[in-house]
Computed example of a mutant assay.
Amino acid sequence: MSEHTAQLSSRDGRWSLYVVLMGVPVSQWPEHDFGTGNVPTPAERSGALTELGFVFTDGAEWAWEEYPERPDDDSSPVRLLASVQVRSGDGGLS
């Protein structure tokens, strides 16, 4: 059963959750848009992943990373990215 990385990111105040599928064009990655507002809760993220057909792998936990919008510029706005390992909920999607 294939594992994938699900990522939660924000751009222009909109939170988006997507599942990275290697070998598949980015435009075809499963995605859920939370809209603007607060960071989606773990329960909201889990629900969105379920709607997209994915579940957490055993022991998976969200990991947060910050990165500059413009690398090598310490005055650049900071972006947040959360990642977690998932697998297909039906066991068949790779």
Rank of each mutant, 00 (worst) to 15 (best):
S83Q: 11
S88V: 08
G47A: 15
P77E: 09
Q85L: 12
N38P: 01
P77R: 13
F34Y: 07
E3Y: 12
S94K: 07
G37R: 02
Y18E: 08
D58F: 02
A6D: 01
G89Q: 11
T57V: 15
L52Q: 00
A48Q: 04
M22T: 13
F56L: 14
G47I: 01
G13V: 06
D58C: 00
F56P: 01
S27D: 05
W62Y: 05
W29M: 04
D90M: 11
G91D: 12
F54D: 00
L80F: 07
S75W: 07
A48M: 06
E51T: 15
E3P: 03
S9W: 11
L21Y: 03
D12V: 02
V86E: 09
P25H: 14
S76G: 04
Y18L: 10
E65C: 01
Y67A: 05
E66M: 11
W64M: 09
G37L: 03
G91E: 12
V84R: 03
D72F: 09
L80R: 13
S9H: 08
S94A: 13
V84T: 15
T5M: 04
A82F: 06
P30Y: 07
A60I: 11
V20Q: 08
R11K: 15
Q7E: 13
L17E: 00
G59C: 13
E61K: 15
G53L: 07
S75V: 10
R11S: 15
S76A: 15
E65S: 12
S83W: 01
N38G: 06
E66Y: 04
N38L: 08
V20H: 14
L21W: 04
P42D: 10
L49P: 01
L17T: 01
